[in-house]
C-alpha cells in the first residue's frame, strides 16, 4: 500500500487507514436518517406552517415568528412568507408552488416532502422511525468513539489546532486543502458542532414537543422556553444542519471527492506526498 504503480505525473502520497468501521457505518446511517428526517419533517411542518415563541400558538394574539401562507391577489394566488412581521413573496417555492394552471398550496413544495402529497400520518411514521435510528446511531458512535479514542484523538481541538486557526481559515478561503491523517481545526469545529450541539439539540427539541415527555421530564420544556419555542428551535436547527450538509458536500467536492469518498467507504485515504505538493509540511 506504499505506492500506486499506475501513478501519474505527480508523486502520490501514502494511503493510510483513516476512518474506522464505526465512523464509516455511522456516517452513512446519519446521511440516510437526515435525508428522511428532513423530508418527513417538512411534511409535518406543512400541517401547520407557522412557528411561534412560548408555550402556545397565538390565534387571538400574535406570537408567530414565521408564517407561510397563500394569499389571493388579482393576478392569482401568491405564496407569502412572513418572518418577524416582514412579508416576502415566495411564490413558486413557499406557500404556493407548481404551475399557474396547477398551483400547489402548502408550506414547502411537494418536491421537498415525504410523501409528496399532504399526508401527516405517513410523515410521522417515517419521521419517528428515523428519529429512533438516529438516536441509536448517535449512541453507538458515542460509545465506540470514546472507547477507540476517535473522539479524543481526532475530534477534540488541541492547543496547536487553535493556534493554527487563522492559517486554516486562510487556506480554506483559497480552497487549498492539506490531506493528512488528522482533521484540520475547522473540520473539528464543524463535526463537534453537529455531533455534540446540533444533533442533541434536534433530539431534545423533538422530545420537548411530546406531551408524554413533557410529563416525564418537566425541566426539558422549561429549559427550551415552551413547547412552541422548542418547535421553532427544532426548525432552526434543521436549517443549520442543512447548511452544514451543503458546506460539507462542497468541501468534499473541492478537496477531492474520490479520495474523500473512498476514505468514508473503505477507510483508506491518500495523504499528500511528503513534502507537500505546495511545499508544505504535513503536520
Amino acid at each position: 500500500m506504499q505506492q500506486d504503480h499506475h501513478a501519474g505525473q505527480e508523486p502520490l502520497g501514502r494511503l493510510i487507514y483513516r476512518q474506522s468501521i464505526w465512523t464509516r457505518v455511522t456516517h452513512w446511517l446519519w446521511a440516510i436518517c437526515l435525508f428522511f428526517l428532513l423530508l418527513s419533517g417538512l411534511q409535518i411542518f406543512n400541517a401547520h406552517p407557522t412557528l411561534y415563541v412560548g408555550q402556545q400558538s397565538g390565534f387571538a394574539f400574535d406570537n408567530a415568528v414565521l408564517r407561510i401562507d397563500a394569499i389571493d391577489t388579482p393576478s392569482g394566488p401568491r405564496g407569502r412568507t412572513t418572518i418577524f412581521g416582514r412579508s416576502f413573496d415566495t411564490t413558486g417555492v413557499l406557500g404556493v408552488s407548481g404551475t399557474a394552471e396547477q398551483p400547489q398550496f402548502g408550506g414547502f413544495p411537494p418536491a421537498l416532502t415525504i410523501p409528496s402529497f399532504q399526508d401527516l400520518a405517513t410523515g410521522r411514521v417515517v419521521h419517528f422511525f428515523f428519529a429512533w435510528l438516529l438516536v441509536a446511531t448517535l449512541l453507538v458512535w458515542l460509545c465506540a468513539g470514546l472507547l477507540n479514542g476517535h473522539i479524543l484523538r481526532d475530534l477534540t481541538p488541541t492547543a496547536a489546532d487553535l493556534s493554527n486557526l487563522p492559517r486554516d481559515v486562510a487556506e480554506h478561503a483559497r480552497f487549498r486543502f492539506r490531506h493528512g491523517r488528522s482533521y484540520n481545526v475547522l473540520q473539528k469545529f464543524a463535526y463537534c458542532a453537529v455531533l455534540f450541539v446540533l444533533l442533541p439539540l434536534m433530539v431534545l427539541t423533538g422530545l420537548a414537543m411530546s406531551p408524554g415527555m413533557d410529563a416525564a421530564w418537566p425541566w426539558l420544556i422549561e429549559l427550551l422556553g415552551g413547547r412552541q419555542t422548542a418547535r421553532t428551535i427544532h426548525f432552526l436547527t434543521m436549517t443549520l444542519l442543512v447548511l452544514f450538509f451543503v458546506v460539507h458536500v462542497a468541501m468534499v467536492l473541492a478537496a477531492g471527492p474520490l479520495n474523500e469518498l473512498r476514505s468514508m467507504i473503505t477507510g483508506w485515504y491518500r495523504t499528500d506526498p511528503k513534502p507537500g505538493a505546495n511545499g508544505e509540511i504535513e503536520p
Binding site: F45, A47, Q55, F59, R124, R227
Partner: peptide, 11 residues
C-alpha cells in the same frame, strides 16, 4: 396545554 398533532398548542 392542548397539543394538536398538526403542531399548534392552546392553553
Amino acid at each position: 396545554r392542548h397539543d394538536c398533532v398538526e403542531g399548534w398548542s392552546c392553553i
